[in-house]
Simulated scan of single mutants.
Amino acid sequence: MAELSYFVEDFYEKVEELFIDYRTRLREDLKKCSSCLTASSSAIPSASNINATCEVRLPQISLPKCNGSYEKWQPFFDLFSSLIHNNSNLSPVQKLHYLKSCLQGEAHNVLQNLPITDANYSEAWLQLIRRYNNKRFNVNEVLKRLFAQRALHNESSTLIKDLLNTTSSCLKCLENMNISTASWDAIINFVVVSKLDTESKRMWELEVSRKEGICVVLVMF
Score class of each variant (00 low, 15 high):
residue 106 E to S: 13
residue 42 S to A: 04
residue 77 F to W: 13
residue 214 I to L: 15
residue 12 Y to A: 10
residue 182 A to L: 04
residue 97 H to W: 09
residue 40 S to Y: 13
residue 108 H to A: 15
residue 139 V to Y: 06
residue 51 N to M: 15
residue 83 L to Q: 03
residue 19 F to L: 13
residue 4 L to H: 05
residue 109 N to K: 10
residue 131 R to T: 14
residue 210 R to W: 14
residue 204 W to H: 13
residue 111 L to A: 05
residue 141 E to K: 14
residue 217 V to S: 12
residue 159 L to M: 08
residue 217 V to R: 10
residue 181 T to N: 08
residue 92 P to H: 04
residue 138 N to T: 14
residue 135 K to P: 03
residue 12 Y to C: 07
residue 158 T to H: 11
residue 20 I to N: 07
residue 169 S to T: 06
residue 141 E to H: 09
residue 54 C to R: 05
residue 50 I to D: 04
residue 169 S to F: 05
residue 187 I to H: 02
residue 88 S to D: 10
residue 27 R to I: 15
residue 167 T to G: 01
residue 141 E to N: 13
residue 184 W to I: 04
residue 61 I to V: 15
residue 17 E to L: 11
residue 75 P to F: 10
residue 39 A to Q: 07
residue 33 C to S: 10
residue 220 M to D: 15
residue 60 Q to V: 14
residue 27 R to G: 03
residue 135 K to N: 05
residue 74 Q to W: 11
residue 43 A to I: 12
residue 129 I to G: 02
residue 142 V to Y: 00
residue 57 R to L: 09
residue 17 E to N: 12
residue 194 S to Q: 06
residue 69 S to P: 02
residue 200 S to E: 07
residue 78 D to H: 07
residue 159 L to N: 09
residue 117 T to D: 00
residue 79 L to S: 02
residue 136 R to Y: 05
residue 199 E to T: 05
residue 47 A to P: 12
residue 39 A to G: 05
residue 140 N to F: 03
residue 144 K to Y: 15
residue 138 N to P: 03
residue 64 P to W: 02
residue 144 K to A: 01
